[in-house]
Design a protein around this nucleic acid. Structure first.
Length: 255
DNA sequence: GCGACAG
DNA sequence: ATCTTGTCGC
């Protein structure tokens, strides 16, 4: 029963947008855009929600057995939001909650699907790539819309693809995961090639626009007082870490 | 200078 | 992301 480490955030509590962009340029060189997807047994999907009213972030992670995609566990974590939403700097806002949620899973995922861009980012360090580098684990970015780059509209049929290009470089694939629905943007997060990433996303799709990992993580993050979103029998670990400047207090359950 | 802009 | 009901289409 091993779980992912709770890595400390490698950036200051106080950070200006300009400083954050400088850090991205410094870290983007660590991203590995190649890698196979063999021998995967555990896959996780992650997402973050921002409950109305409060200024808190709720990270959600769902662990699946692969390739049958049976959800085996979920994890929720809430903590204060410390960074605003700034296009291009999403990871500084969402990573704390994502890391906290991932640390609550019972197994270390062989692959993590993130709701957001991987290298399909102005400085090639979207939230999926940033997460992968921090954990040194394979990740894939699956976004619902484009941040930067241009592309030709893929065919309306399921499975149709079209390259996403930015500054003369292919940074991702616009993939139609279902007929007549808006395509998703797939890009390398870390330690995986684009072709392999697209194949993996397709193998995780089950008739919905979003692949199961991201789809259920999104559902888990957004459904608070509601029916168990993963099905009866699937354990969900909940933890609310009320901390100010890193000093964690006593964890209290969500719900 | 103007428009675009993950979640 | 979040606030929000019904409704049109595959």
């Amino acid at each position: 029963m091993s779980s992912l480490p709770r890595v400390p955030l490698p950036w200051p509590d106080e950070l200006t947008p300009a400083a954050a962009r400088a850090l991205q340029k410094q870290w983007r060189g660590r991203v590995q855009r190649h890698g196979r997807v063999d021998g995967i047994r555990w896959i996780a999907g992650v997402d973050v929600a921002f409950p109305a009213q409060g200024s808190r972030s709720r990270g959600a992670a769902v662990l699946f057995r692969y390739p049958d995609l049976v959800p085996v566990a979920g994890s929720l974590a809430e903590l204060p939001t410390r960074f605003p939403y700034v296009p291009g700097l999403l990871s500084f806002r969402e990573l704390p909650a994502l890391l906290a949620a991932l640390s609550g899973l019972p197994q270390v995922p062989d692959m993590i699907l993130v709701d957001g861009q991987g290298i399909a980012h102005p400085r090639r360090l979207g939230v999926a790539s940033h997460l992968g580098v921090l954990l040194d684990r394979p990740t894939i970015g699956v976004a619902k819309s484009v941040l930067c780059g241009r592309y030709a509209e893929p065919d309306r049929a399921s499975g149709s693809q079209s390259p996403l290009v930015h500054d003369g470089e292919v940074i991702g694939t616009v993939l139609r995961t279902r007929q007549n629905v808006r395509p998703v943007i797939v890009s390398c997060g870390h330690r995986v090639g684009l072709t392999e990433a697209v194949a993996l996303v397709q193998s995780c799709s089950r008739g919905y626009r979003l692949p199961e990992p991201t789809r259920l993580a999104d559902k888990l993050a957004g459904a608070n007082p509601g029916p168990w979103p993963l099905g009866e029998g699937v354990p969900i670990r909940c933890e609310s870490t009320v901390d100010v400047a890193g000093a964690a207090q006593a964890p209290v359950p969500i719900r």
